[in-house]
Design a protein around this nucleic acid. Sequence first.
DNA 1: TGACAATATTCCAAAAATGGAATACTATAA
DNA 2: TTATAGTATTCCATTTTTGGAATATTGTCA
Lengths: 97, 97
Amino acid sequence: MKSNLYEKKAQIFKALSNPVRLEIIDFLADGEKCVCEIVEKLNYEQPHISKSLIKLKEAGLIKDRKEGLNVYYSLKICCMGEFFNCLNKILESESKS
Amino acid sequence: MKSNLYEKKAQIFKALSNPVRLEIIDFLADGEKCVCEIVEKLNYEQPHISKSLIKLKEAGLIKDRKEGLNVYYSLKICCMGEFFNCLNKILESESKS
DNA sequence: TGACAATATTCCAAAAATGGAATACTATAA
DNA sequence: TTATAGTATTCCATTTTTGGAATATTGTCA
């Protein structure tokens, strides 16, 4: 029961434990984007971006919306920003030591 | 430069992407603990706990302090709680849908 | 010094993640 | 209906992670 919760949280962190996926999250913080925009912005192969988006979606971090040929993705959580700021502090203090 | 930052953040998330390590973080939120206390509480093999602690330490999430035979570990970051609460909300909303 | 308790390290096989390449699917427009 | 643009899926080899088992290291005390 409780260990299952740790499993699920671990899944969320796993979805975030990849630089490409973090870059996508960062870009989506700017607002909803379609796959083609993300591909163009991040300069990775389209299948790679698609797989990354699906992983983030499965973790419950982003959601999608279809419109014609395009699929638009956007962030589903709001607490990312604060935690990312905190991580930045950690990384700063490490680079000093 | 910037991509390197994503790499480092991904490393932190990777350290958090494991249920045992999350359980350790949770236990340490209660205050500083020695390895033997963590082993007893979490009921895993001592080498496994040791390796988990080292991974968390390398990610900059916890710190250690030696005292005689014992090594005491404690959290190095304070922003974990808020983010964890946010994750709980995500997991709750998912379990409803 | 020798024995022991607490912790860390190494070794290893199985499982999972990674990312490239090719291909499939789907909605639209001609 | 066919061609095409946008997106998703599958396949695969390589790398990384995982966790158990054995062993090494380190500090303390008699």
